[in-house]
């Protein structure tokens, strides 16, 4: 079979595009730091959740919902889970936090309605103000 010059040239150009485009895309792409490890959303520091997996690697999430979805896919339990107190914006251990499910959404893209507080008084106050409920121990999102 004899190939024409035009076929060879167009084939080579096609090949160049097919290989060059992914390479250019890879070089141009910047992986943004501090994005949600589940869906890549920007993280509001007030709702940040961090999970240290069984191998010691930290993973940040934009809300409790994403952290829960991510945890369900892990075969081994995490080493540590840190949530953020909505009042002060300070990190705290997930086991020590108070959780409230209310009408207010923290991250609209996931529809997360669970809020985190360090103090029980703040949790109750938020629940009353936003038609919510303070979650019991067996309803703890990271139980």
């Amino acid at each position: 079979m004899k190939l024409s010059k035009a076929s060879v040239v167009s084939g080579l150009i096609g090949l160049l595009v097919v290989i060059g485009l992914p390479v250019a895309g890879h070089l141009a792409r910047r992986i943004p730091e501090d994005r949600c490890a589940l869906d890549g959303a920007t993280i509001d520091p007030v709702y940040r959740v961090e999970i240290v997996d069984s191998e010691g690697h930290p993973h940040a999430f934009c809300c409790l919902r994403c952290a829960q979805l991510w945890l369900r896919r892990q075969e081994t339990p995490p080493q540590k889970i840190t949530v953020t107190d909505e009042e002060s914006g300070e990190p705290l251990d997930a086991k020590a936090a108070w959780y409230v499910r209310s009408q207010r959404v923290t991250q609209r893209a996931t529809g997360n309605r669970i809020h985190v507080f360090r103090d029980e008084a703040n949790a109750v106050e938020h629940a009353v103000a936003n038609s919510g409920t303070v979650l019991l121990d067996d309803e703890n999102p990271f139980r």
Binding site: L38, D39, A41, R65, C66, L69, R108, A109, T110, G111
Partner: peptide, 14 residues
């Protein structure tokens, strides 16, 4: 108009 349900995380990753 705003979303009554979540975005793609809920649809594709749940």
């Amino acid at each position: 108009v705003f979303l009554s349900s979540g975005c793609c995380t809920e649809a594709f990753d749940w």
